[in-house]
Amino acid sequence: MKDNFSKQSKAYAHFRPHYPATLYDFFYTHINSFDKALDIATGNGQVAAELSKKFNQVHATDISAKQLAEAPALTNVFYKIEAAEESSFPDKYFDLITIAQAIHWFDFDKFYTNAKRMLKPHGVIAVIGYGLLSVNSLVDPWLLHFYKNITGPYWDKERRYIDELYITIPFPFTEITPPALKMEYEWTKEQFIGYLNTWSAVQHFIKANNSHPLSAGLLQQLDQLWPDNRLCKISFPLLLRAGHQ
């Protein structure tokens, strides 16, 4: 598993979108017990914190100590630095395993073998993510240009699984058909730019070129499309594969 987010862990915690309550409600309806949950590649603990409201215990793992340093301290959430493929928890231990915006980085075979071992009979596994956001008919062409032409060559090859909406990842479980879900917010232009700066491709561009991909010219173009202090409605398509043993 790659660690592309330690360097911008504070920005990641501040600017990354949060999953809606309807997502959690969906897979909660398929869970028989709310004793223990595991959130793998928890990052800043966003999903783990939500699960803690429902489960007696939540274990949350990540390979990045800097990311875990941004996670909330909660009495029933237990953080651990550990790779997804090497989780060391007992067999048949968890009622729910979640992986949010991270499955595309994993060694699928190793991870799924371990996940099946740790999941209780009839336990649920939920692979969650979100695709490229949309703003409006003015900003979206600018965004697509930045995504495909400017940062495009700097995305890791695994990004394709997100572009393919997680449809092409292996998923060796009895699948539960999810509802169509999305995440919607009202953002300022500054929030939008803050989110773009969390992209791993932006960090790869900076490292390769010693310059920022959001050039003065690109920012001037964006200023013409999105005035200062104006809120715009933005939407992320929500990706979800859920199933049980």
Rank of each mutant, 00 (worst) to 15 (best):
G131N: 08
T113V: 09
V139Q: 09
L240S: 05
H59V: 09
G123S: 01
V135L: 04
Q224E: 07
S64V: 09
G45N: 12
L51W: 00
K10W: 05
K116D: 02
E175D: 10
E175H: 07
M1S: 13
P178L: 06
E164Y: 13
G152C: 11
K120T: 00
A73S: 14
T151F: 12
H122Q: 08
A11P: 02
D107N: 15
L239S: 04
S88L: 08
P72N: 14
P20N: 13
Y154Q: 05
F173A: 08
H244K: 10
A83M: 14
D3M: 11
N56P: 00
H30M: 04
A69M: 14
V58Y: 01
C232E: 04
H244G: 01
Y130I: 09
A13I: 03
T151W: 10
F146G: 03
T174G: 10
T188I: 07
P17I: 05
A69E: 15
F34E: 03
N210C: 05
A49P: 14
E82M: 14
W187H: 12
A73R: 13
N136A: 05
T177K: 14
P170C: 04
D3L: 12
A65K: 14
G131P: 02
K182V: 06
D91M: 01
G129H: 05
E70I: 09
I169L: 04
A201S: 15
L240R: 15
Y185N: 04
D62T: 01
K110Q: 08
A71R: 14
Q101S: 11
N136H: 07
R241G: 00
K110T: 02
A21C: 03
F236C: 09
S64L: 07
A126S: 08
G45V: 10
A126P: 00
W142R: 12
L219Y: 12
K110A: 07
L143Q: 09
G217H: 08
M183T: 12
T168N: 13
H145I: 08
I206H: 07
F55A: 02
H104Q: 14
K2F: 06
D109Y: 02
L231Y: 07
L143D: 01
L196Q: 12
A180M: 10
